[in-house]
Design a protein around this nucleic acid. Structure first.
Length: 645
RNA sequence: GCCGGUGUAGCUCAGUAGGUAGAGCAACUGAUUCGUAAUCAGUAGGUCAGCGGUUCAAAUCCGCUCAUCGGCUCCA
């Protein structure tokens, strides 16, 4: 009967169908004990799964990467059981494993509190100790619906009706008295979950992710192989919180946000220095790559927004201002303005591609619940540009853009860029031939990067497909920075045309694109990526000159002048404080170079150089220091982002 | 916008039957002139987010509003 091929290539044959667990036993009792599940021909299955045909099989133990998902999914089930034992009036809905943990959504009138979490968690530990075997049962669809209806689990009935495809069998997993409809697989026994889990937070979540539906109570948890792994993870979280740009923004005196202007940053001089540096950098990049910088009005009459289609769709998210009889919108984006510039005079195909860039300040009235430091803000400036081109120019323009984008990201030391490709939605403008061409162009460009990218079918805008380039913040949340979006709609709506080779009037294609995205968000990501210890060329104060005693004041001032003349941003600390105190303070302020001047240095015309991370570079002449700093500054060197104290 | 948490000095946080606020750091003043991550002493600093209510009395109890944090939805 079944011949089973194991991962090492060895084969075993059996006379009768054999379960994963029995297979493991035949290899060794130790392995049998460690068996969590199996992988049969690449599909994860329960340990009790019976193999009746030839197959490639791997035994999954705690050490396998798949184990974590199993543990986490089980943790969700055990949590649901615990919740229903403590609060019988609660209905269960769904509870998947997620990155680093799991959650379960419950339907219950009273929201859970933090205290409830402790209760639930200890009940979970009790259930783990109960050592309950987890068993899979196959049910008839209608019988399963009746079962859950009888128990008042109306959400589960809906899941069986709407979510589980007709082609799939309905499986129910049982642990003790408790059961749940679930695809599985699961661990053999609740005790296999162990102790490496913790409930972390409660939150609201809409049923089936739709804001028109009821709000459920979601409990999040994290789960690991053992308590040691759990502890490591929790420690990492604590460390990550120290990098939070909102916290560092305050302690490093970069910016603040206050009640009277929610979602809008007050940039302090130090933060603004970073802002300007960044803008200067990208402005020069764009110029070199054939972009022309323009500037359009901050407020524009609503009629233009009506024509562009924004008024219909985004009226609620636009700030408006009125004067006399007119209503103006404070611009939420630059593109309609750029089309106005494009429309001045007659454009020929010879003018294309035309790339218009603008660092325009945009305002969007983002819903209050979505604001998040600099990452999601109501007033921002993008490194925005619009490329007007012919259909034939789409591919070369997209390619050139992607090259430029990765060149820029490399300059900042970002290597883990997340790429997502969103294709045509159901409701769209433009004919399919055009979409074919556009999607093909984006996909070709994507494949040429050699990087992985995620397809998001149907997620494109109604006016065209798009690629998004995202990075993670210190807590692993994903934020979009760059994007390139094709637009088949707006140029037509706003009357943009060009004269083609055959003398006919055609509508150009417009590409919306940004690399940094909003400068605000980009700075937020930078701060978290570098834990505030930004590369030399971006940092507000590049070097701090400090004296041992007041006798070196004059000498120090002379050095500062020389460094400043070379374009370096240098400050003096002549305070009557001990050198240890000064070093601590400026190290905490993440100033890259700490320059100490005492009697010895003054006598020899030198400085003692130390970095913010505590590295002692020894004593050097001012020329040597200048060479070091000027090179690092003008070459925009990026160093290892590790910073610790 | 929705669900839940939080809001006390510049920052981080105490404040326990309701009886008109406290620490550390920072700031300021003075002393100390010192060699690589915190020198000592003193001083000052608060409409307890805002508005309203209960009470002889509210940071504390109740209501509303705002902001903020964590999720969800949304993101041109």
């Amino acid at each position: 009967m079944p011949i089973i091929t194991l991962p090492d290539g060895s084969q075993r044959s059996f006379d009768t169908p054999i379960t994963v667990l029995d297979l493991a036993t035949s290899i060794g009792t130790g392995l049998a004990k460690a068996t969590l599940a199996g992988k049969v021909n690449g599909n994860l299955v329960d340990a009790t799964y019976s193999i009746d045909t030839n197959a490639t099989v791997a035994i999954i133990t705690r050490r396998d990467p798949e184990a974590l998902d199993l543990l986490r999914h089980d943790a969700a089930h055990v949590m649901a059981q615990a919740v229903q034992e403590i609060y019988p009036d609660t209905q269960v809905t769904i509870g998947p494993a997620i990155e680093n943990g799991f959650y379960y959504d419950f339907a219950r009138e009273t929201p859970f509190t933090t205290k409830d979490l402790e209760l639930i968690e200890s009940k979970m530990r009790e259930i783990v100790k109960r050592n309950l075997p987890i068993k899979r049962e196959i049910w008839d669809r209608n019988a399963a619906k009746e079962l859950f209806a009888k128990h008042g689990e109306h959400y589960k009935v809906q899941i069986i009706e709407d979510i589980i495809p007709e082609s799939e069998e309905v499986s129910i997993y049982r642990q003790g008295e408790w059961f749940d409809v679930c695809r599985g697989p699961h661990l053999p026994n609740t005790s296999y979950l162990g102790n490496g889990f913790k409930l972390t937070k409660v939150a609201g979540a809409y049923w089936r992710g739709d804001s028109n539906n009821a709000m459920l109570q979601r409990i999040y948890g994290t789960a690991w192989r053992d308590t040691k792994e759990l502890k490591t993870y929790l420690h990492q979280l604590e460390e990550a919180e120290k990098r939070d740009h909102r916290k560092l923004g305050r302690t490093l005196d970069l910016f603040h946000i206050q009640e009277e202007a929610p979602g809008m940053a007050f940039w302090h001089d130090k933060g603004w220095q970073i802002y300007l540096q960044l803008q200067d950098y990208i402005r020069n990049k764009l110029k070199k790559h054939g972009y022309r910088e323009v500037h359009t009005p901050q407020i524009i009459d609503r009629t233009l927004w009506e024509r562009s289609g924004h008024w219909d769709k985004f009226r609620q998210e636009m700030f408006i201002t009125e004067t006399e009889d007119k209503i103006f919108a404070i611009k939420p984006m630059n593109c309609p303005g750029h089309i106005q510039i494009y429309n001045q005079g007659i454009k020929s195909h010879r003018d294309l591609p035309l790339r218009l860039a603008e660092f325009g300040s945009c305002h969007r009235n983002e819903p209050s619940g979505t604001l998040h430091g600099l990452m999601r803000i109501r007033n921002f400036v993008q490194d925005d540009a619009h490329i007007f081109c012919t259909e034939e120019q789409i591919l070369p323009e997209v390619k050139a853009f992607m090259e430029l984008l990765f060149e820029v990201y490399k300059d900042f030391g970002f290597d883990e860029v997340i790429l997502a490709f969103s294709t045509r939605p159901e409701k769209r403008v433009g004919d399919d031939a055009l979409w074919d061409k556009a999607e093909q162009a984006l996909e070709t460009a994507l494949n040429q990067t050699g990087l992985n990218w995620k397809l998001q079918p149907g997620e494109g805008a109604f006016y065209g497909p798009k690629i998004e380039f995202s990075l993670r913040d210190c807590l692993s949340r994903i934020w979009q920075l760059g994007t390139i979006q094709l637009d088949f709609s707006m140029p037509g709506r706003l009357g943009a045309t060009y004269v083609a080779e055959d003398n006919s009037r055609k509508t150009p294609v417009m590409l919306h694109r940004a690399i940094l995205g909003s400068i605000e968000r980009f700075i937020g990501i930078l701060i978290e990526h570098y834990a505030g210890a930004l590369p030399l060329w971006l940092v507000p104060v590049q070097a701090m000159l400090m004296t041992i005693t007041n006798n070196q004041d004059q000498y120090c001032q002379q050095i500062a002048q020389r460094l400043t003349q070379q374009g370096l941003r240098v400050e003096l600390d002549l305070r009557n404080e001990k050198i240890g105190y000064k070093i601590r303070e400026h190290s905490l302020a993440r100033i890259p170079y700490l320059l100490v001047v005492g009697e010895r240095e003054q006598a020899n015309n030198t400085l003692a150089v130390r970095t913010r991370s505590g590295e002692n570079l020894g004593t050097m002449s001012i020329d040597q220091l200048l060479e070091l700093l000027v090179h690092e500054n003008t070459a925009r060197l990026v160093k290892n982002p590790s910073y610790s104290i």
